[in-house]
Design a protein around this nucleic acid. Structure first.
Length: 818
RNA sequence: GCCGGGGUGUUGGAAUAGGUAGACAAUGGGGACUUAAAAUCCCCUGGGCUUCUAGCCCGUGCGGGUUCGAGUCCCGCCCCCGGCACCA
C-alpha cells in the first residue's frame, strides 16, 4: 500500500516518447468492465506486469496502458434487471475494477486510460467506420444473418459457436435483415499470407486463423441449364470433371424455382425445400444429419464432356459458400459417393491409382487421392495435379469457366440491434439515400437516460430525438441509423489510441504511433484467437493502407495464457468454485497472489487454483523477509537447524549468479514459473548459508546474494522487494538500480560432477576438474571404485571396452563388448 | 472426419541443443524447538527386490524402431483437451 502511493505520487509509470531509449509496448487485452476483477484477469495482468517491470529495469521505455472495453450487452441486461442506467452501471464497475487493479500494484500509465464508451473514444470508432466507408470497405446489404433471440441482435459468423451464441448459448436463428458489413474478405489473402510473418505468435493460433480464413484453390465451371442458362459450380477437383454424374443445388438457389415451375416435380420439391428451411441452423449443419436430396426433373450439360446430368437439390449444399451449387463426382468424393449410392445415381471412375486397381463393383468408398486421369477425353493419362491445371486452362480458353480461389471467411457483420454501443454514423435521406455523417459532425452522441427494456426494438430506434435529423447533403428531414456497432469494432483499434490518447482532433497522432507501434508483446486469452485478433489485424491493415500507421501487423509477439481452473473445472458462479482476488489480497497481500499465480503453472497452460499453493507462496516470501532483515516474522527463535553439506561462500556467489542468468533467460522466454522456482532455490541456499558459523560467513558475499535476490524478485513481488531494498539501506526504487548482470567466471565451477555410465546405465559419479580432457575423464572413470567392481582393474577392464563416449564435464559412457 | 496441443510421482509442474528423469513446490510421514499448539528448522516422500552403513531391477499413455545413450527423434496405436465441421 505504502509503495503504491509513492509510485502514484511520483508518476513512476507515466511514460512519454523518448527516442533515446529502446521502446517496449506491452499490452494485455483490456477487460470488459463486468464489475469484478476475477482471477483470470489477475493472472493475465500479472504476467504483463512482471514483464513490464523487468523491461523497465532493463532500461526500456515501456508503454503499459490499461482501459475498458466498455460497450456491450451486459450493461443493458443489468439495466433491465436492476433498473440502473447502462452508463451508471458501467462507470461504477470501472471505478471499482480500477481500484482492484491498483491494489495489485500493476504498473499502468493511468494517464492513458481509454474507455470505449466515452464519446471522446467512440467518436474515433465512428471515424474509423467512415474511413472504411470511404474506402469501399463498409457496405449495407440484406442478407440472412445469425439472429440471437435472447440477445435480440444479429451476430457475426465468428460469434456463433456450434450454432449457438458465444455470449449466452442460445440457439441462433437465421433471419434475413438489412445489415452493415465490413469487407474483411477483401483482405482474406493478406490476412492469410501475413500469418507467416508472425514468428512471435503461437503456431496453433495461426493455424486457427488460417482454418477460419479457409482458402481453397479450384475452378468455377459453368454447366448449362435446361434453357442454356449458366449454372456455375465451384470445385477443387477440376481433374474429376469427366466423373460428374449429377449436379446438386442448395435449396435456396434461385434457379430451383425456375426449373420446377409447372412440372410434376414442383410440389414434392417445394415440400422438400420447406422441410430443410424450417430446420434450425444447428440441426441443418449437424454431422448426424442424413444427406437428403430430391430430383428436380431438369438436366444440365457438362461443358467439357458434353454429358447430360440430372439436377438435384441437396440439404447439404451451402448456399453462401462457393456458388451454392456443386458437381456430383461420386467416384472421387466421399459425400457424393454416399449420396449416389443412396439415390441410385451412376458412379464413374475417372481417376485411377498408380496400379489401376480400382474396380467399380468392388468400391466401398470414393477414391479421393490423386492419381491418373482415365476416361477423360483428351486429358486421359495426365496426373491429377497436372490435370487440374490443364482442365482450368481448357475452361478458360473455351469460356466454360475459370480458375478460382474461394475463402470460407465471410464479411464481418457489424450491425447490432442494441442500445449500448457506438452508433453507426449514417443518415438515411428520402432524397439523397444513404449519407455518411460528415466527419466534422462526429461524434454521433449516444443519448443517455433512455428507458431500456427487454425485447422489442432497441431504445434508440424508439427515441425520436435521436432518429429524426436533417440530411447533411440537402438539409431536408432524414432518419438516423439506429443500429450500433459490434463492440469488436471498438477493440479492433484501441492499441493505437493508447499510443496517442490525448488527441482531440485525430484518432491518434502519426508520430506517436510511429514511435510505439507495433505492440511488442500482447497477452490475453485464447478465446479471441479468431475474433478479436483477426479483426484487429484486419483494421490495422486498413489503417496501414490509408497511410495512418507504420505497421502492417499490430502484435509482434502474442502470449495466449491459459484459464484459471479449480478442481479441474472453469470457475463459475453456478459451480460455486469462484476465488475472489480481493479476499486473497486482503489476507496475504498482492505479492503473494502474484507469486503464486506465476509459480503454479507456465503462462500458456491452465492453472489449477490451490489454496495450499497460495500458502506456499506466502511461506516463501516470509522466509525471504527474514533472510534479508534478520527479523523474525512471528515464530519463536531458537529452532535453528544445521546448514547442511556443501554450503560455502563460493557456492553462494555461484548460485546467485546462476540465478541472475536463469531468471533473466526465463523472463525472456516467458517461463515465469521456472523463474520463481530459481528464486526459491537461491533463497534456500541463502538460508543454509546463514546457518553457517558467523565467522565463516562473508558479509560482502551475503550482501551480493541478497541484492541479487531482491532485484530478481522485484518484478514478481514488487512491494516487498522495494520495502526490503529500503531496509537494506538503499535509496530510490529498486527498479532504478537496474537489472543485475551475471559474471560467467563466478558461475563456472572448478570441479564438476561427471556421471559414469556403463552401457548407458548410471553406475557412478566422479568429481573432476572442469575442462579435463577425454582421456583424463576416462582414466578417472575406470579407476572409480564402482567401475572397478563391475569391470575389473587396469588391462582387464580395457579389454572389455568396445567404445567410450565422453560429453565434456557432464558424462562418460563406457560401452562394453558383447 | 480434418487440424492443433497434450499424456511424466499422491498433486501442480521441471528437464531450454538426444546425455544424471522427477528441479521447485504442494501433500503425507518422521524428528528438533515448545508446558502445549501455531510458526520455524531438519530429514524422508515413484514402484519393486535384496544379503538394507550398500546395491539391483523396473519406471515419462501402449507397441515397435534408430542410437553408446530416448521423456526428448522415427513408425504404428490408445486416451484426454481445444478449434473447425456436410466448405464441394
Amino acid at each position: 500500500m505504502k509503495w503504491q502511493g509513492i509510485w502514484r505520487d511520483n508518476e513512476t509509470y507515466v511514460v512519454t516518447e523518448d527516442p533515446s531509449k529502446p521502446k517496449f509496448y506491452l499490452l494485455e487485452m483490456f477487460p470488459y468492465p463486468s464489475g469484478e476483477l476475477h482471477v483470470g484477469h489477475v493472472r493475465n495482468y500479472t504476467i504483463g506486469d512482471v514483464i513490464s517491470r523487468y523491461k523497465r529495469a532493463r532500461g526500456y521505455n515501456v508503454l503499459h496502458p490499461m482501459g475498458w472495453d466498455s460497450f456491450g450487452l451486459p450493461a443493458e441486461n443489468a439495466a433491465i434487471d436492476r433498473g440502473i442506467q447502462p452508463d451508471t452501471w458501467t462507470w461504477n464497475n470501472i471505478a471499482h475494477m480500477r481500484e482492484q487493479l491498483k491494489r495489485m500494484g500493476f504498473t499502468y500509465d493511468w494517464s492513458r486510460e481509454v474507455t470505449t464508451a466515452f464519446p471522446e473514444y467512440y467518436k474515433w470508432t465512428q471515424w474509423l467506420f467512415l474511413l472504411l466507408y470511404e474506402r469501399g470497405l463498409a457496405y449495407k446489404k440484406t442478407a440472412p444473418a445469425n439472429w440471437c433471440p435472447k440477445c435480440h441482435t444479429v451476430l457475426a459468423n465468428e460469434q456463433v459457436e456450434q450454432g449457438k451464441c458465444w455470449r449466452c448459448d442460445s440457439l441462433v436463428e437465421r433471419r434475413s435483415m438489412d445489415q452493415w458489413f465490413f469487407k474483411i474478405t477483401d483482405y482474406a489473402e493478406r490476412l492469410l499470407a501475413d500469418l507467416e510473418k508472425l514468428d512471435g505468435w503461437p503456431e496453433h493460433i495461426k493455424i486457427m486463423q488460417a482454418n477460419w480464413i479457409g482458402k481453397s484453390e479450384g475452378a468455377e465451371i459453368d454447366f448449362a441449364g435446361p434453357d442454356g442458362e449458366k449454372i456455375p459450380v465451384f470445385t477443387t477437383r477440376q481433374d474429376t470433371i469427366y466423373g460428374v454424374t449429377y449436379l446438386v443445388l442448395a435449396p435456396e438457389h434461385p434457379l430451383v424455382e425456375k426449373i420446377i415451375q409447372g412440372t410434376e416435380y414442383e410440389a414434392p420439391v417445394r415440400a422438400f425445400i420447406d422441410k430443410v428451411m424450417r430446420m434450425s441452423e444447428i440441426d441443418r449443419t449437424a454431422e448426424t444429419l442424413e444427406k437428403e436430396g430430391i430430383f428436380t426433373g431438369a438436366y444440365a450439360t457438362n461443358p467439357v464432356s458434353g454429358d447430360q446430368v440430372p439436377i438435384w437439390i441437396g440439404n447439404y449444399v451451402i448456399y453462401e459458400y462457393g456458388t451454392g451449387a456443386v458437381m456430383g463426382v461420386p467416384g472421387h468424393d466421399e459425400r457424393d459417393f454416399h449420396f449416389a449410392r443412396k439415390y441410385g445415381l451412376p458412379i464413374k471412375i475417372v481417376i485411377q491409382n498408380e496400379d489401376k486397381s480400382l474396380r467399380l463393383e468392388e468400391m466401398e468408398n470414393a477414391y479421393v487421392d490423386p492419381g491418373i486421369m482415365v476416361d477423360s477425353g483428351k486429358f486421359t493419362g495426365l496426373g491429377s495435379e497436372e490435370g487440374q491445371a490443364e482442365v482450368t486452362r481448357f475452361l478458360e480458353e473455351n469460356g466454360m469457366g475459370r480458375g478460382k480461389v474461394t475463402y470460407k471467411m465471410r464479411d464481418w457483420l457489424i450491425s447490432r440491434q442494441r442500445y449500448w454501443g457506438a452508433p453507426i454514423p449514417v443518415i438515411y435521406c428520402p432524397k439523397c439515400g444513404t449519407v455518411p455523417v460528415p466527419k466534422e459532425d462526429l461524434p454521433v452522441i449516444l443519448p443517455l437516460g433512455l428507458k431500456v427494456t427487454s425485447g422489442g426494438p432497441s431504445p434508440l430506434a424508439r427515441h425520436e430525438e435521436f432518429v429524426n435529423t436533417t440530411c447533411p447533403v440537402c438539409g431536408e428531414g432524414a432518419r438516423r441509423e439506429t443500429d450500433t456497432m459490434d463492440t469488436f469494432v471498438c477493440s479492433s483499434w484501441y492499441f493505437f489510441r493508447f499510443a496517442s490518447p490525448y488527441n482531440t482532433d485525430v484518432a491518434f497522432a502519426k508520430e506517436d504511433v510511429d514511435y510505439w507501434s507495433p505492440v511488442d508483446l500482447y497477452i490475453g486469452g485464447v478465446e479471441h484467437a479468431v475474433m478479436h485478433l483477426l479483426y484487429a489485424r484486419f483494421i490495422t491493415k486498413v489503417l496501414y493502407d490509408a497511410g495512418l500507421v507504420p505497421a502492417e501487423e499490430p502484435f509482434q509477439n502474442l502470449l495466449t495464457q491459459g484459464m484459471v481452473v479449480r478442481d479441474g473445472a472453469k470457475m463459475s458462479k453456478s459451480k460455486g468454485n469462484v476465488v475472489s482476488p480481493d479476499e486473497i489480497v486482503g489476507k496475504f497481500g498482492a505479492d503473494v497472489m502474484r507469486v503464486f499465480m506465476m509459480f503454479a503453472a507456465p503462462p500458456e497452460r491452465d492453472l489449477e487454483w490451490s489454496d495450499r499453493g497460495v500458502e506456499g507462496a506466502n511461506r516463501f516470501l516470509r522466509r525471504v523477509w527474514r533472510q534479508v532483515t534478520g527479523e523474525h516474522t512471528g515464530e519463536q527463535p531458537g529452532a535453528e537447524g544445521a546448514p547442511g553439506d556443501g554450503v560455502s561462500t563460493e557456492g553462494l556467489l555461484r548460485i546467485a549468479h546462476q540465478s541472475i542468468k536463469k531468471v533473466s533467460e526465463d523472463l525472456e522466454r516467458l517461463a515465469l514459473n521456472t523463474a520463481v522456482s530459481q528464486l526459491m532455490e537461491l533463497s534456500n541456499y541463502i538460508g543454509r548459508y546463514q546457518r553457517l558459523p558467523k565467522d565463516s560467513q562473508s558479509a560482502d558475499a551475503l550482501e551480493e546474494a541478497k541484492t541479487a535476490l531482491l532485484k530478481l524478485l522485484s518484478p514478481f513481488a514488487p512491494h516487498m522487494a522495494q520495502e526490503l531494498w529500503e531496509k537494506l539501506g538503499y535509496s530510490g526504487t529498486i527498479e532504478e538500480a537496474g537489472w543485475p548482470e551475471y559474471d560467467q567466471a563466478t558461475i563456472a565451477e572448478r570441479t564438476v560432477t561427471v556421471v559414469v555410465q556403463v552401457n548407458g546405465k548410471v553406475r557412478d559419479r566422479i568429481q573432476i576438474e572442469a575442462g579435463s580432457s577425454d582421456e583424463e575423464v576416462t582414466d578417472r572413470a575406470l579407476a572409480s571404485e564402482r567401475i572397478v567392481k563391475l569391470l575389473g582393474e587396469g588391462p582387464d577392464a580395457r579389454d572389455k571396452i568396445a567404445k567410450v563416449v565422453v560429453v565434456k564435464d557432464k558424462l562418460v559412457n563406457i560401452v562394453t563388448k558383447r
